[in-house]
Write a protein that binds this DNA or RNA. Structure first.
Length: 431
RNA sequence: GCCGGGGUGGGGUAGUGGAUAUCCUUGGGGACUGUGGAUCCCCGGACCCGGGUUCAAUUCCCGGACCCGGCCCCA
């Protein structure tokens, strides 16, 4: 293949057999979201670069697909949903709270492709605007968990929950003024060795004793009953911890999967102001499957007046990778359809009208258009996965009948065309 | 942007400084003139691209793009 024919780096072609798993990924997320009262929105794939400069700064703009358009405007292929969603939100003054919105569309980031990460991907997003309390937090996290559960991942992931406010207090206690720096170090906790962590924290102005105390605290599992006692003595922690615990117990009421307090979950350098959460595979090591949190300042950044907000994003790449590893990605294709064969092209018009009857009865019908011998057509019928083959030859044509062959059992019968669809339905259901 | 690894038909592979590039699978056709899955037969289909070394490169060397994984970053 010549170079110009190759796909661009980090982009994918999706063939039909791969679409089956993907369609489940999309449709389950959407129907679960609707069942929670979330409504679907959509927004442009191209936005002004300013939207991201405002929110994230130059270093993130460098990781986008950006260019100058013919009108001299700096534009960016959308790398994430939140700024666009918030722009939509603040543009409307007639919304009644709470607003629950979701979207599922393509995003682009100019990064090196690697495990769980591509340059073009789909991301599901769900946000709730308006009220700010533990029930709101819990409902948004419950939606995230319910979607993963609907994928058959129940019990196979862990929902980690933390609070930015809580971390701010714990980190401030070490005496550093470089909060974002310390959070960034903590975000890298799992892939960094102890020595480097201490060194990096020292660069944030945290002394060795303070740093190892902080790391010890963060890595203590929530199942250790002492953890709460150790942090609750820090001034200001108590009400925050109380809210987090209430949130966790509400989420637990909606999922069988593990929901845990995890002090190392901080979500990088982003715009979160309160609760943060991330889901990780339990059996298989994964990047975060989804992640989100409360971001109460974003609306003010765009419009001047704050609107409390919580939301999460879930990319398709990591979920797909996990489901593949667990062997639940592409489950059996449906075959509730018929394959229509003709013994001669002379009967094609009859075959078309028969196919139309099937389709009007709600049965998918594929007509063999090849003009090949019946033997070859039957082979194609078998390979197509159809449970029923419809055979049309001289006899059937003359008597206004069709032959239905159950491709699983091999039974077949010649039947009047008016009863064919109903009979095929029975045959399909019989399996 | 940086680092490590990798490439032979659609998928999986064998092999080689020189001749028609191996096998399995998939796809098409046939044996089977109105019936699929089994068997047999036939057919189609590949050495990532460019440069170098050489009489000769799919093979050796260099570079590039691409793929896999990691760093940075993770919205």
């Amino acid at each position: 293949m010549t170079q110009s024919m190759e796909r661009l780096r980090g982009f994918r072609d999706i063939y039909p057999e791969e679409m089956r798993g993907r369609e489940k990924l999309f449709s389950s997320a959407e129907s679960v979201s609707r069942s929670y009262g979330y409504e679907k929105i959509d927004f442009p794939s191209l936005e002004s670069m300013e939207l991201y400069r405002l929110k994230s700064g130059e270093e993130l703009v460098g990781q986008t697909f950006s260019f100058v358009d013919r009108g001299g405007r700096e534009v960016t292929l959308v790398p994430e949903a939140t700024p666009s969603v918030v722009r939509m939100l603040v543009s409307r003054k007639d919304l009644s709270w709470p607003v629950r919105w979701y979207s599922f569309q393509k995003f682009w980031r100019y990064e090196e492709p690697q495990s769980g990460r591509l340059r073009e991907f789909y991301q599901f997003n769900a946000d709730l605007f308006g009220p700010d309390n533990h029930a709101v937090d819990a409902e948004n996290i419950s939606l995230a968990a319910s979607i993963l559960d609907s994928y058959g991942l129940s019990g196979r992931y862990e929902m980690r929950i933390n609070s930015r406010e809580l971390m701010n207090l714990l980190i401030a206690k070490t005496g550093t003024s470089n909060l974002p720096g310390a959070l960034a170090v903590i975000d890298r906790l799992e892939k960094t060795d102890q020595e480097t962590l201490l060194k990096d924290l020292a660069e944030c102005g945290i002394g060795k004793n303070e740093a190892s105390g902080l790391l010890d605290l963060i890595t203590t599992p929530a199942s250790d009953g002492n953890l709460e006692n150790r942090i609750i003595s820090v001034p200001g922690v108590e009400p925050i911890l109380k809210r987090v615990k209430k949130t966790i117990s509400l989420v637990r009421a909606t999922t069988q999967s593990d929901v845990v307090l995890n002090l190392s979950t901080v979500r990088g350098l982003s715009y979160y102001t309160g609760i943060v959460f991330e889901a990780f595979g339990k059996e298989e090591k994964t990047r975060s499957i989804l992640g989100g949190g409360r971001y109460n300042e974003m609306a003010a950044l765009l419009s001047g007046s704050p609107i409390p907000a919580i939301g999460f994003g879930m990319g398709d790449v990591v979920v797909e990778g996990l489901m593949r590893k667990l062997g639940i990605w592409n489950e059996a294709r449906t075959s509730d359809r018929v394959y229509i064969c003709t013994s001669s092209e002379d009967y094609m018009e009859y075959a078309f009208s028969v196919s139309s009857l099937f389709r009007k009865s709600g049965i998918d019908a594929e007509v063999d258009l090849s003009g090949r011998g019946l033997s070859a057509q039957m082979k194609a019928a078998s390979r197509s996965g159809s449970r029923v083959a419809v055979i049309i030859g001289e006899r059937e044509y003359g008597s206004r009948k069709v032959t239905l062959r159950n491709m699983v059992t091999g039974e077949q019968q010649e039947i009047d065309v008016s009863n064919a669809a109903a009979q095929a339905k029975r045959s399909i259901l019989k399996r």
